[in-house]
Design a binder for these strands. Structure first.
Length: 262
DNA sequence: ATGACTAAACCTTTTAGA
């Protein structure tokens, strides 16, 4: 089965591209971030027409996440239980793991940006990361098959940015953020991207400005983390830069993981 | 160079993103 994540930066603008991408890439679950629309504006009919189920957790103007899937979702949870949040950032659900009787828990997340170290938004990002980790630690006890994917807004290390010196201690690249990302992996989650040989300078986001995509001035901030039980089944992981070449692209590219399961 | 580009909204200006 295939799972993917994509920050679309407005589903209203990007819906045609999402439908085109799904037609060319018929994944089992697609997590979307930055819908920038409310639930009542979510295009359920378009996804149903394409043969997909959709769960939505929207918000006006900012944030908003969705899970698009072939199989119906169960056990749908919005945001992080135990962490009060007035923003729509997390949507989780369970699905059948392939054709097996096992269950897969998918957590789609739009991590806070954090704006600038020392800012209120950065403090919120740190608190949010604490809350996410505490919740996932407990979820892993009951869901050994777990995928955490989305826009993490954090680089693992300097290999994930085109300009390590320029970005040093800047947002997405601070030691504090990277500590939290490592702490998530310490729960028993693995960066699927680095399980496989990847093209050098692989990024998932490029600034709209300064011809950044053409110059490959990007960062890898969109990730798929898979639990230990799933790791043995992972067969491939890639970043699909194709949609970033569209006329009116999202600034992020989709990331896909393939799992070989019965 | 508190810039550039994109999107949304309280829309000719601000806020946020990353």
């Amino acid at each position: 089965m295939k799972l993917a994540t994509w920050n679309v930066n407005s589903l209203t603008v990007r819906l045609p591209q999402v439908l085109d991408w799904l037609a060319a890439n018929p994944v089992d679950v697609l997590a979307l971030q930055e819908l920038k629309l409310t639930d009542d504006k979510f295009p359920h009919a378009a996804f149903a027409q394409a043969g997909y189920n959709a769960q939505c957790f929207g918000q006006k103007t900012y944030n908003g996440v969705a899970l698009i899937s072939r199989a119906p979702a169960a056990d749908v949870v919005k945001n992080i239980p135990g962490f009060d949040d007035d923003m729509a950032r997390v949507l989780s659900a369970t699905y059948p793991l392939g054709a097996s009787a096992q269950t897969l828990l998918v957590v789609g997340a739009y991590f806070p940006n954090g704006q600038e170290p020392g800012s209120d938004k950065f403090e919120y990002k740190m608190a949010w990361l604490d809350g996410l980790r505490a919740w996932l630690r407990s979820e892993l006890q009951t869901h050994p098959n777990l995928v955490l994917m989305g826009d993490f807004n954090i680089t693992f290390d300097d290999a994930d940015t085109w300009d390590p010196e320029g970005m040093r201690d800047q947002i997405h690249c601070t030691d504090e953020e990277r500590y939290h990302l490592q702490a998530l992996t310490a729960l028993g989650l693995t960066d699927a991207h680095r399980l496989f040989t990847q093209p050098p300078k692989s990024y998932s986001w490029w600034d709209y400005r300064d011809m950044a995509f053409r110059r490959n001035h990007g960062m890898r901030i969109d990730h798929i983390l898979i639990s230990n039980a799933l790791k043995a089944h992972a067969s491939a992981c890639w970043i699909d830069k194709t949609p970033r070449k569209n006329e009116r692209p999202s600034d992020h590219a989709p990331v896909v993981v393939e799992l070989l399961v019965q």
